[in-house]
Amino acid sequence: MNYCNPTWNNRGQLSATDIRGANLFYGLRTASAVGAASLGQRLYVFAKGLDDNRIYHMSAASGRPFDPWVEMPGGGLTEDAIASASLSNRIYVFIKGMDNRIYHTSAADGQPFGGWVEMPGGGLTEDSIAAASLGNGIHAFVRGMDNRVYDNFAEDSQPFGGWFLIR
C-alpha cells in the first residue's frame, strides 16, 4: 500500500480490502460497541470497527485461542453497542442500524451467520439494544422513539413477532 501520494491509490483513502487486511494483521481497532455471548463450548465476541461502523466477530472454543476477526455477513452497519444472546443451539446478534431500525442475525452452533434482517413490527430506536434468553425464548429490548421500553420475543427456532410495550 502506498498512500503517501494523495493523487494515487484511491486518493489516499484505504479501501475496504485494505482495512480488512490491516485488521487481520494488526488486530481490529474497535469502538466502545462490544458484545459477547457463549454457545455450547464456544465464546463469541462482537465489535463495531472503529473506522468503518461494520460489525465483526471472533470466537474461541473453551481453552483455545480466538480465531481472527471476521466481518459479519450482510453488510450491517451500526454506531451503537451490539447485543447478543444464545438460546438452545443458536446465537442471536442485534444491532440498531444507521437508519434507527432494529436488525438481527443468528447462527446455529458451528454454522456461519446469515445476513441482517429487520425485526418484525417496524420498531425504531435511537439507543442500543439489550437481549436475553429465558426458558424457551429470546427477547430483544429497545427504548422506542416515545421513550418507552419495548420487547420483541421469539420462541426457540421461531420467527420474532412484533414489538410489545413493557408496562
Rank of each mutant, 00 (worst) to 15 (best):
W8V: 07
A16D: 09
P112Q: 06
M119G: 11
L28W: 06
Q13T: 05
G123W: 00
A22H: 09
V34W: 04
I166V: 15
F94H: 14
Q158Y: 13
G49M: 08
G162E: 12
R42F: 01
T105K: 07
L77E: 11
P68E: 11
N152P: 01
R167M: 12
Q158R: 14
K96W: 01
G76W: 07
S128H: 02
N9K: 09
A154F: 03
G63E: 13
M98A: 15
F94M: 05
S84V: 09
A85T: 13
A130V: 05
V45T: 09
A36I: 06
A140F: 01
G63V: 07
P159E: 07
W69D: 02
R11N: 10
N147K: 09
V149Q: 07
G122A: 05
E126C: 02
S106Q: 09
R148M: 15
D80W: 03
G114Y: 02
M72P: 03
F25V: 10
A31L: 11
M1Y: 09
H104R: 11
P159S: 10
G114I: 09
G114V: 00
D80G: 03
K48F: 00
E79L: 12
S15D: 02
P65R: 12
W116R: 01
G122M: 06
G137S: 11
A132R: 11
W163L: 11
G135K: 04
G121D: 15
H57A: 12
L77Q: 15
G114K: 11
A132K: 05
P112T: 10
K48R: 03
L43D: 07
G76V: 03
G144I: 03
W163M: 04
N2G: 07
L39T: 00
A154K: 02
K48N: 00
D67G: 15
D127V: 03
S84A: 13
G115M: 04
F141E: 12
A131S: 13
A140Y: 00
E155H: 11
F46H: 04
M72V: 02
P73Y: 13
Y44D: 06
G76P: 02
F46V: 01
G12R: 05
K48C: 00
M119K: 08
A60H: 03
F164H: 13
P68D: 12
A108W: 05
A130P: 07
